[in-house]
Design a protein around this nucleic acid. Sequence first.
DNA 1: TTCTACCGCAAGCTGAGGTT
DNA 2: AACCTCAGCTTGCGGTAGAA
Length: 209
Amino acid sequence: MNKVHIPTKEEFIKGIEEFEKHENRDAMYKVATFLISHFWSKASDMADGLGVLLLTWNQAFYRYGNFDFDKLEECIKNNLEKLKKFKSRDITTLSKSDEPDMKSIFTEFMKSLQIASGNMEGRKSPVAVAKALHLLAPNFFPLWDVRIAKVYGCYYNNYPAEKYIRFMKLMKEFVEKVRGYVVLSNYQNKTLLKLIDEFNYSKYTKGWI
DNA sequence: TTCTACCGCAAGCTGAGGTT
DNA sequence: AACCTCAGCTTGCGGTAGAA
């Protein structure tokens, strides 16, 4: 399915409500968001902030072994200028000319966030990359997981960066359609992309609605 | 009461093997 | 080529039943 199903306002809000009812790890998102914005441009502290989220939310992946914080710090340093630009952007401004930068940044984060030791050394996680990029540019990079990616026809077993770009285009359309559904200040100033992930997670990953 | 063994599970990934 | 399904992987933790 490559066509975006746009929910009604009622369905959308129901998804967000169910997420908040069932999912109690959301505190990590707030803490990590604060750390990233507070320590912006200090790559080492930013890496710690990302770690807060990744090692909790993405525990299903990192239970096999952690990523290397030094590598992540290096990756953030190398991409800080690009990240700064994306941070100030909204996904609705996404254009074809962004694709080379997005692709290279996705690929570099994929390398730096791979499992760094143990039997599963080298294993990569496109889901973790999206979480990291979203924290760094919360109005520009969307969140996904395997179930959500499949529903939107963006399953990432091959060419994950390309699939993520495809997913971004779909989420851009989603944002444009549901913009008027909610007043963000009623949702602890989460971004629309975060709320969309809560909806997607409730509907497609968990089947709560 | 405390120790032990066992079960179930987690905002996932990979590969093989299928279909379209 | 793209896409999907599903078993298998692997670790640490909380809960539980039963033994010591």
